Amino acid sequence: MKTTNAEYRLPTAAAFALLLCLFGCGTPPDRITLLPNADGSVGNVIVQSGGKRQVIDKAYTRADVTKSGAIEQASDDQATVQAHYGDLLAAQPPRPRTFTINFVFDSATQLAPESAATVAELKKVLATWPAPHLTVVGHADLTGTQEFNDRLSLQRAQSVAAFLIRSGIPAQQIEITARGKREPLVRTADGVPNPANRRAVITIQ
Rank of each mutant, 00 (worst) to 15 (best):
F103K: 05
V104R: 03
G43V: 09
P36F: 02
T118L: 08
L89K: 12
A200H: 01
V201E: 13
T66P: 02
T203P: 02
R156T: 04
F163M: 09
N102Y: 10
P132H: 07
K67N: 12
N37P: 02
A6E: 02
C21T: 12
P193L: 00
K67F: 05
A91S: 13
A38Y: 06
A59R: 08
H84Q: 14
P11S: 11
Y8M: 05
V201W: 03
W129Q: 06
L19G: 01
V160C: 13
K123W: 10
Q48C: 07
S153L: 06
L126P: 02
W129V: 06
G51T: 14
S107Y: 01
V136E: 04
S167K: 03
H133D: 00
K2P: 02
Q173H: 15
R166D: 10
T66W: 03
L164Q: 04
L34A: 00
S107K: 08
K124V: 03
S153D: 12
K124A: 07
L142M: 15
P170G: 09
T100C: 12
T100N: 12
T203K: 00
N194D: 14
Q92C: 11
Q155W: 08
A6Y: 00
V65K: 04
I202Y: 05
F99N: 14
P184M: 00
T143E: 05
E114M: 06
I71E: 01
L164H: 07
F163H: 07
V119E: 01
H84A: 11
K181T: 02
G26V: 08
E121F: 06
N149W: 04
Q173G: 05
A162I: 06
E183Y: 10
K181S: 11
A171N: 07
Q172M: 11
M1F: 06
K52R: 15
G168P: 10
E7M: 15
S41D: 10
A127G: 02
F16V: 00
Q54V: 14
I204T: 07
A108P: 01
Q172W: 06
Q172S: 13
A171Q: 13
Q173P: 00
L152D: 02
E114G: 03
L19A: 08
F103C: 02
T12I: 07
D87W: 11
A108D: 06
T203M: 04
Q110M: 14
K181W: 09
V186G: 00
T109W: 03
N194M: 07
V104Y: 04
T98A: 14
I176W: 01
P130R: 05
G168I: 15
K181E: 05
V81N: 05
G191R: 02
R9Q: 10
I176F: 04
G191A: 08
E114L: 09
A112P: 11
Q110G: 13
A13M: 08
V186H: 14
G168C: 13
S49P: 01
E175W: 09
N102G: 09
Q110T: 15
R53V: 08
F99L: 15
R95S: 04
R179K: 13
L122V: 07
G69V: 12
V119T: 02
H84G: 01
L88M: 10
P93D: 00
